[in-house]
Design a protein around this nucleic acid. Sequence first.
DNA 1: TGCCAGGCCCTCTTTAGGGCCTT
Length: 210
Amino acid sequence: MNPVAVIDFETTGLSPAMGDRATEIAIVLLEDGKVVDRYQSLMNAGVRISAFIEDYTGISNEMVRAAPPAAEVMAEAARFVGDVPLVAHNASFDQRFWAAELARLGADERAVPSFACTMLLSRRLYPEAGSYRLGALASFHALPSAGRAHRAMADAEVAAALLSRIQGDIQRQYAVDDVPHGLLVKLQRCQRKALPKAIEGYFQALRDHA
DNA sequence: TGCCAGGCCCTCTTTAGGGCCTT
C-alpha cells in the first residue's frame, strides 16, 4: 500500500478565516498499516492563545513563545509530506489550516490536495459507533492510547491507528487487496449501501486506465 | 473579555433547522 500522511493540528480556534492560527502540527507516515516516520513541532505564529485553548490542548503561550516560527515549521512540514496524500480526522478542519498556513508562505490555496477523512469514513463503515469523536472511535475499536488527547502527535497517532483499522476492515469486508487514498476519498462521499459498487467502480476504472 | 466557522447529515426535510466534529 502506498504511504499516506496522517496530520493533526492544534490551533488557537476553529477558523483561520477569523484569524485563528496553528500552534502545533504532527504528521504520521503510515505504510501498510504501520507507522514508518513521524514529524512534530510546536510553532510560534505570534498570536495569543486563550485560557480556554491553553486548558483544552495543554499548549501554553509560554510554550509557543519558545517554539520556532510558524513559517519555518510549515515549510519543514510541507517538505516532510512531499507528494504523499493526506488524511485527517474531521479533515475539513485540518485542510483549512493546512491551506491557510501554507498560503502565508506563498503557496496556492487552490492547489491544496484533497484529504481523506477518518470521521466521514467511520460514519459510513461503523453506523453502530454512536459517536464519531476521535476519542470515542478509539474506545469503540479499543485502539491503544497514544498520550495526552488534544496534543497533535497523540491525536495523529490515534487517527493513524483508526485509518489502519478502516483500511483493514475495507479489505476484509469487500475482499480487496489494497485501499489507496483515492478510494478512501471516493468512499467518504458514498452512501453506505453504495460502497460495494463504488469500490468495484474504482478498481474497474484503474484497470481501464492501465 | 467573549465571541467567531464550515461541512456533513438527519429529519418533525428539500422554500430549513439543528446537532455533530474539529480547536
